[in-house]
Design a protein around this nucleic acid. Structure first.
Lengths: 144, 144
DNA sequence: AATATTTTTGCAAATAAGTTGCAATTTATG
DNA sequence: CATAAATTGCAACTTATTTGCAAAAATATT
């Protein structure tokens, strides 16, 4: 099944129509590197209304047709290392608790990227979401 | 030197005054996990004007007092794995070219996080910026 | 295929996030 | 403590996103 047929199927299966708007959004994303909403709207350039692009994004997300590289925020602020140390985070979806990613493991990863690609990293942003030990245990109990 | 004295020093050194606004922003960020602008404004809650918070953020960034966990975008959109594979990216600051992060290395990293913290990852966002081989070579030439 | 029904679209207007101009206030300096 | 320079708050603006509603398009029915 082609990606396009897949789209039709995904829409029909859940009772949604196949429309010009939806095809345009799909085709614009297809074969592109990830796009911001602004870029997507720019590329679609008046062929369909801005509002419909937003609505299509929302629908496609619900149907699992697209996914967001989702930071949920444009940026977060923190004091620089000189004033307090900079970390990357694990966020528990269960209890919203935030812990730091182990520095050694992170460094090993960044180094492996560097050597592999002959790429010299100068900055990185890493966020991981999941379930902490406590929440996994609670959930287990809930499911029994 | 305490973080607070450090702040005074960093400001004075570059000819900026020490003001109530700047102290409040600093203290609010100090000892907090990273905050979005909205959260920061909410916590400061009318003690100083929204606009001044924005201006202080801008100044602190220029002075290297704060740093952004900077995605530069709230989210980017891409087709789900069912329609096209989902990757994480290396962005070259020199030529803006985007390449994918090696999947094996990424998985190894995610697994190491999982075992270490007893944390079960369900999603992650990773972006790395730096210089590709070509741009490093070009830059070398430019510096000679 | 023509019409009825349901879904989707575009437009106008609302809300939210961030920026700019300017007069009033605060901070630094002699 | 008076003056000059820097900083703040307010109002107004821009940009991003959302919502209500009538018109248009897609689907189902005959």
């Amino acid at each position: 099944m082609s990606a396009y047929e897949d789209l039709n199927h995904a829409l029909k299966q859940r009772g949604y129509s196949i429309t010009r708007s939806r095809e345009i959004v799909f085709n614009t994303l297809s074969g592109s590197t990830p796009l911001t909403t602004a870029d997507l709207i720019k590329r679609i350039n008046k062929r369909i209304d801005r509002v419909s692009v937003y609505r299509t994004i929302k629908l496609f997300e619900e149907l699992g047709i697209i996914q967001r590289l989702n930071f949920g925020f444009k940026y977060k602020l923190e004091l620089s290392d000189r004033f307090a140390e900079h970390h990357h985070h694990l966020t528990c979806i269960g209890c919203n608790r935030i812990t730091d990613i182990n520095k050694k493991e992170l460094e090993a990863f960044i180094n492996s990227i560097a050597s592999d690609k002959e790429f010299l990293p100068s900055a990185h942003q890493i966020e991981i979401q999941g379930y902490c030990k406590k929440c996994r245990e609670t959930e287990k109990q809930l499911n029994n």
